[in-house]
């Protein structure tokens, strides 16, 4: 089967590998500690570990897009900001 049309590149491959690793890690964590530690935080609805991971990845995407729109700086800053934001989500949501 010819897969050249998928046009894989290293950075995108790394991105997806990291994503798969994250999901697998969450799966293993969930397997040993089921339930996902639900709690009601800053967002006012119940979130589990998985929700928090999803929210941080999604908001990282939006932070990067906003960065592209409103600044001309390097995207690494946006990444740093996303990580700070992710930590915030993990602790407060």
């Amino acid at each position: 089967m010819d897969l050249s049309w998928m046009a894989w590149t290293t950075p995108v491959a790394i991105f997806f590998v990291v994503l798969v690793c994250l999901i697998t890690a969450m799966g293993i964590w969930e397997y040993f500690q089921p339930g996902g530690g639900p709690r009601v935080g800053w967002l006012r609805f119940e979130t589990t570990r998985g929700d928090r991971l999803f929210l941080s990845i999604l908001s990282a995407g939006f932070i990067n897009l906003g960065w592209i729109r409103w600044t001309d700086q390097s995207l690494w800053w946006a990444l740093a900001l996303s990580i700070i934001w992710a930590v915030f989500i993990y602790r407060k949501c």
Binding site: S4, W5, M6, A7, W8, T9, P11, V12, F15, F16, I68, L75
Partner: peptide, 23 residues
């Protein structure tokens, strides 16, 4: 979806030839 992510960072002139263009 994976393919779309790949396309989003590349340019093409057809024939499955792609060039990395970053963001």
């Amino acid at each position: 979806l994976m393919t779309v992510v790949n396309y989003a960072f590349q340019d093409t002139f057809g024939n499955n030839e792609f060039y990395w263009v970053g963001i």
